[in-house]
Simulated assay, not measured.
Amino acid sequence: MLSHEEHIKLLLKNYYEKAELILPDDLYVREIALQPVDSENYIRHLSFPSIHELRSFITKKIPRHLYYSSARYQEPANPSMDEKKWMGSDLIFDIDANDLLQCKESENIIQFKFCKNCGYISFNLDEKNCPNCNSMLNKFEHVDPYCIELSKDYVKKLMDIIERDFGFNNYEVVFSGHRGFHIIVNLPIEYKFMTAEERREIVSYIRIEENDIKAIISELTNYDKIKHYISLPPQLIDGGLRRRIAIEIAKRCNNKAIHNFVMGLTQTINYHEVREFYKDLLNIIYEIVKEISIPIDTKVTMDITHLIRVPNSINGKTGWIAHAIKNRDLENFHLEPSMLSPFNNIKMRIKMLIDIPNIKVIDKNFKYKKNEELIIDASYATYFIFKGLAKIIDIKN
């Protein structure tokens, strides 16, 4: 009978022998990095001339996590970052469901520390060692599927900005296989060499930091009662931030004249109509500006050497596929076993290492006790296994 570790290796090896990994056409100028399934350390500065050579390598050195660099290098295998000779980078965005304010302030995120050896659980995230056996504690974080569905709305808004405001159309949308989405933009040649600081400007435009909100609101609500001067509402045809704000105003506006002006159906509007609307706008403008803010990961977008999880590789935190979304069709992407798991026709007998609180995984609720054994579909079992909460006893095809 195979051990827990041998089962995992065999599952991943079988997957990577046939996996349709999505890799850039210029793979030969990208750094490849991976964490072997049997190691805590990463192997960096790898380079392969083709996917054939890469596949040959990863079916021997089986990865828990597999990445390629957003950067292109003349010498991608050079161990010195300064000597790789940078040749520009893709533009990367990362939206994680655990960063959404709606989820941070609710019970949709569960976090605790646990001991694999004795099953001790602590909700003190600063605790490092088990008080019972002195083993190092592991961190568990669970994000409810509701939050992942919610993050799709932010991805759609980001796609709108990428296409309408930036004019970029060559990009991929990928579910990370864990708790969020990656967007990989293959930039036109004139933008590939943007510096980290230039990419920081993109981050500021998308996130709209708190420091910028006051200035934006001041511009939109400029009103001089004596001079009879008032700012016109933004329109969809304005572009940029004004276009993004106009979209949200149109959703909330009950005044037909204002709505038609914002939508660009009319180009003139009565001063008194605007003045009445101004009173309503003061009550909702902060909410609107916060609504158009998108919580992308600042460091990821600024990093010109960022490592991208290979689309259609397996995420070693869940055992799920980093699913490349065909035609960027988010409407038809849902958290369901057939999309997430490469092991849909397999059942696993697993043993729980700790007490599992009531959590929802994909579309089912689970609650188990330490040492409890159960047989469940692999799409759910791998979540507990790769999170370190359970061990494989047997696999049934």
Results as ranks from 00 to 15, higher is better:
231 S>M: 08
369 K>T: 14
212 D>G: 12
87 M>V: 09
7 H>C: 09
394 D>Q: 09
258 I>P: 01
135 S>F: 11
176 S>D: 06
250 A>P: 05
397 N>G: 11
174 V>G: 00
44 R>A: 10
67 Y>W: 09
382 T>K: 06
309 R>C: 05
310 V>E: 02
52 H>T: 15
275 R>Y: 15
56 S>D: 15
171 Y>Q: 06
237 I>H: 14
109 I>Y: 05
129 N>M: 13
36 P>A: 01
312 N>A: 01
170 N>L: 10
210 E>S: 12
90 D>A: 10
138 N>C: 11
86 W>N: 10
397 N>S: 14
361 V>S: 04
204 S>Y: 15
6 E>Y: 07
108 N>L: 13
293 S>N: 00
314 I>Q: 01
32 I>Y: 01
226 I>S: 12
83 E>K: 15
113 K>S: 08
378 A>W: 02
285 I>A: 06
311 P>K: 04
128 K>C: 08
268 T>W: 12
187 L>Q: 02
105 E>H: 13
147 C>P: 00
376 I>Q: 00
273 E>I: 13
11 L>N: 04
206 I>M: 04
129 N>R: 15
385 I>H: 03
366 F>M: 07
221 T>P: 04
276 E>Y: 14
29 V>L: 13
167 G>A: 04
289 V>L: 03
161 I>M: 00
116 K>I: 06
87 M>D: 11
36 P>Q: 02
96 D>V: 03
372 E>K: 10
126 D>L: 15
299 K>N: 15
246 A>N: 02
188 P>L: 05
167 G>C: 08
15 Y>F: 03
5 E>W: 12
233 P>T: 09
103 C>Y: 02
111 Q>V: 14
283 N>V: 13
373 E>K: 10
371 N>T: 14
130 C>L: 01
20 E>P: 02
264 G>T: 02
64 R>V: 09
151 S>T: 07
351 K>D: 03
296 I>W: 05
273 E>S: 13
238 D>Y: 07
172 E>C: 11
308 I>E: 01
42 Y>F: 15
234 P>I: 00
226 I>C: 11
252 R>K: 08
354 I>H: 00
191 Y>A: 06
218 S>G: 10
22 I>E: 11
227 K>D: 14
215 A>S: 14
352 M>K: 10
137 L>F: 01
3 S>K: 07
75 E>H: 15
218 S>Y: 12
5 E>S: 14
210 E>C: 10
13 K>H: 02
61 K>T: 14
207 R>P: 10
181 F>G: 05
41 N>S: 15
257 A>S: 08
143 V>W: 00
290 K>M: 08
391 K>G: 07
223 Y>V: 07
13 K>T: 06
